Simulated scan of single mutants.
Amino acid sequence: MNRLLELLKVIDGDVEFDGKNLTKLKSQHIDRFLAKHARCRHYIYQKCVADDCAYCTINPPRIPEELFKELYFVPDSTVNANGYTPFDELYGTETDDSGRPSLTLKPQSTAKVRGFVHCCECGKRRVVYSEKRLCPQEEKSLIRVQEELLFVCCAVLFPGGQYQDIIIVKEGQCCSSPIEVTYYAGKTMVFDQICIHCGNIDVVETEHTRELQEQFGIVRPICQTCLNANRPVITRNALKTKNKKNKT
C-alpha cells in the first residue's frame, strides 16, 4: 500500500489515502489522469500506452518499446446484425460495453433462480441465476466452484470461459450485504430458511416475530445472534386490519 501511495502522489502530491478504500479518494488530478490514461469496464481494467503517462515513467513497460506502442485497449463486445463483431475488426477502434451479454440478463427475476453458492470468505449463500435450467455439465461446474472455494462476494461467478454471462450471481453484493429476497421466493427452487442478515441456518421464532407475522405478509427469518445484536426483523406487505364493531 505504501508503494501505491507513492504512485498516487506522483499524480497528486496532496492526495490522502488510508490504505484501505480507493473509492474514498478525492482528487481531481487523479480523476483526470484515469479519464485520460485508463479504461474501466465490467470485467477488465486497462492501462493506456500514452507517452506522457506519469505511471509509465516510473514503471516502464517490460516488453520492447516498438511492440508496446502498437498495443491498444482490448475492445468491448459489440453487437451487429449477425451477432458479435469479430475481435480483429474491433481492435484499435473505440468501443463501449453496451453490448455486454450480461446487460441483457435480469438476475433479479425469480423465474431464473437456479441454485446458490457460498462465499468462501463470509459463508453467505448467494443466489445463482440463469436463463435456462442448468444442464448436468453446468451443475458440475457450479459444484466445482463451490468445492474449490473459488467464489467470493462481489466477484463474477465464472470469470472468463463459456459460462461467464450465462450462469451468474447478482452484481454489487459484498460480504456485508444481506441475503437476497429472491432466495426466499420459492418459485423455481425452494431453499432452507436462513437468517437474512448473516445466513445462519439456525433461525428462531420469538413472540415478537409471531406478532409481526400477524401484521405483515412477509417476515424474513432471523437468528438469535442477530436478534441479540439488535438487528431488525425485516418485514414487507403490511396486512390491512379492520376493526369490527360488535352488533348489539
Score class of each variant (00 low, 15 high):
residue 222 I to S: 07
residue 215 Q to E: 13
residue 198 C to A: 04
residue 211 E to I: 00
residue 210 R to E: 08
residue 219 V to G: 04
residue 222 I to L: 06
residue 207 E to P: 01
residue 205 E to L: 00
residue 201 I to G: 04
residue 210 R to T: 06
residue 215 Q to L: 08
residue 221 P to A: 15
residue 231 R to M: 11
residue 233 V to L: 07
residue 208 H to P: 02
residue 198 C to N: 04
residue 233 V to F: 15
residue 216 F to V: 03
residue 220 R to W: 11
residue 212 L to M: 02
residue 199 G to M: 12
residue 217 G to A: 05
residue 223 C to I: 10
residue 215 Q to K: 09
residue 225 T to I: 13
residue 205 E to R: 00
residue 215 Q to P: 02
residue 216 F to D: 00
residue 206 T to V: 06
residue 214 E to R: 03
residue 217 G to Q: 07
residue 235 T to I: 10
residue 224 Q to A: 15
residue 218 I to G: 04
residue 203 V to E: 02
residue 231 R to F: 15
residue 208 H to C: 05
residue 222 I to R: 09
residue 202 D to G: 03
residue 213 Q to L: 05
residue 204 V to R: 06
residue 218 I to W: 11
residue 217 G to I: 05
residue 221 P to N: 15
residue 235 T to S: 03
residue 216 F to I: 01
residue 214 E to V: 03
residue 210 R to N: 06
residue 207 E to I: 08
residue 201 I to R: 10
residue 200 N to E: 09
residue 199 G to E: 12
residue 233 V to M: 08
residue 222 I to N: 12
residue 212 L to T: 01
residue 205 E to H: 03
residue 223 C to E: 09
residue 208 H to E: 15
residue 215 Q to G: 02
residue 200 N to P: 02
residue 224 Q to C: 10
residue 214 E to H: 03
residue 235 T to G: 00
residue 212 L to W: 04
residue 223 C to A: 13
residue 221 P to M: 13
residue 213 Q to A: 06
residue 231 R to W: 11
residue 221 P to Y: 14
residue 204 V to A: 04
residue 225 T to A: 14
residue 228 N to P: 01
residue 203 V to Q: 00
residue 211 E to N: 00
residue 227 L to T: 11
residue 209 T to Y: 06
residue 234 I to N: 05
residue 224 Q to G: 09
residue 221 P to C: 12
residue 203 V to I: 06
residue 207 E to Y: 13
residue 225 T to G: 06
residue 212 L to D: 01
residue 218 I to E: 09
residue 214 E to Q: 00
residue 216 F to W: 06
residue 235 T to H: 05
residue 227 L to D: 15
residue 204 V to F: 08
residue 226 C to K: 10
residue 205 E to Y: 00
residue 230 N to I: 09
residue 234 I to Q: 08
residue 198 C to M: 05
residue 219 V to A: 11
residue 213 Q to N: 03
residue 211 E to W: 04
residue 214 E to P: 01
residue 213 Q to M: 08
residue 227 L to E: 15
residue 224 Q to F: 14
residue 201 I to Q: 10
residue 234 I to P: 01
residue 203 V to C: 06
residue 231 R to T: 07
residue 205 E to P: 01
residue 234 I to E: 12
residue 198 C to F: 06
residue 217 G to W: 11
residue 231 R to N: 13
residue 204 V to K: 04
residue 224 Q to D: 14
residue 217 G to K: 04
residue 216 F to P: 02
residue 200 N to M: 07
residue 203 V to S: 01
residue 217 G to T: 01
residue 227 L to M: 15
residue 218 I to K: 05
residue 209 T to H: 02
residue 214 E to L: 00
residue 232 P to W: 14
residue 233 V to E: 10
residue 228 N to M: 10
residue 204 V to C: 03
residue 199 G to A: 13
residue 230 N to V: 09
residue 234 I to L: 11
residue 210 R to K: 08
